[in-house]
Simulated scan of single mutants.
Amino acid sequence: MSKIGIMGGTFDPIHIGHLIAAETAREHCDLHEVWFIPSYVPPLKANEPGVSGEKRYEMVCGAIESNAAFRALDIELQRGGVSYSYDTVMELQRRYPNHSFSYIIGSDRINDLPQWHQIEQLAAQITFIGLERTSDPYDIGALPIFLKERISLIHMPAVDISSTAIRSRVNAGLSVQYLVPDSVHSYMRRYKLYES
């Protein structure tokens, strides 16, 4: 059975922090592959993504093309509506019955887990890989027991980059070269993404 890590999010835009997180999880948890799944509308974020799903998906594809263990799926974009992880996992399990899945999340999201849609049913189907970052405190003891038992914690190298900061820098006319993969940087410039 293939072990697959799921990297979900808006990827608005994808940046090197996402790639480092995925590779760290892949190495430490012996994952065969990591699948990047851009969301259509994220359930726990106030604002919808600033760039279309098609463009975010194309940036993800460009960012991961050099890593044979990375793959992009557009199933949440195709489904539309609010992108619930539970619905995505059910669809993945239907399509790929010989795979086991783990959601890769940053430590800033660990204490949000109880708010996830149908979290008890989701936790019964998959495991979670929590990437510990010193900048994002969390309290594993505050989680319900059914979640504590389903999380593996691994240390994440310190990379202080966010999609929000990247959008702000572009809007202010500042460079984001080296914060995003070259293919994403070129794509953003070609389509003038996030510019004021």
Rank of each mutant, 00 (worst) to 15 (best):
C61T: 02
Y40V: 10
L193N: 00
S168G: 14
F128H: 02
V184C: 06
D182I: 06
G80C: 07
I37V: 03
N47E: 14
R71W: 09
Y187A: 04
H155Q: 13
G9R: 09
N67I: 12
I6M: 13
K192L: 14
T127F: 05
S2F: 12
I119P: 01
L92S: 04
I104K: 00
Q121P: 05
R169E: 12
M1L: 10
L122S: 04
S39K: 05
V60I: 01
G141K: 05
S186P: 09
L73T: 00
A46E: 15
N171S: 14
G106V: 08
Q93P: 05
D87S: 13
W116L: 00
M1V: 11
I129R: 01
G106A: 03
H18T: 13
E76A: 15
A142K: 03
Y191F: 15
L131T: 05
L113M: 00
D139N: 07
S85I: 03
F70Q: 00
F11W: 07
E65W: 02
G130H: 07
D30K: 11
Y187L: 14
L122T: 01
I75M: 11
A165Q: 15
H18P: 12
T164Y: 10
I151L: 07
T164H: 14
S162D: 10
G80M: 05
I140W: 09
A46S: 15
S152M: 12
R190I: 15
A142F: 01
G62S: 04
D108Y: 04
T164A: 10
Y86M: 00
M188P: 04
Y84M: 02
G106E: 02
E91Y: 13
G5Y: 13
A72W: 02
Q118A: 13
I20L: 14
G17K: 11
F128L: 02
L44I: 12
I20S: 04
L147Y: 01
R71T: 12
F70E: 00
N47L: 12
A124N: 07
S52H: 07
D87R: 02
L179W: 13
V34C: 07
Y178A: 06
M188C: 06
D182F: 09
A165K: 11
T24L: 04
P43T: 10
R150K: 10
R190F: 11
A142Q: 04
H185P: 09
L153Q: 02
T88W: 11
R189C: 14
L122R: 12
P157S: 00
R79T: 07
L147T: 04
S2E: 15
V89S: 00
Y187G: 02
I6R: 11
G81E: 05
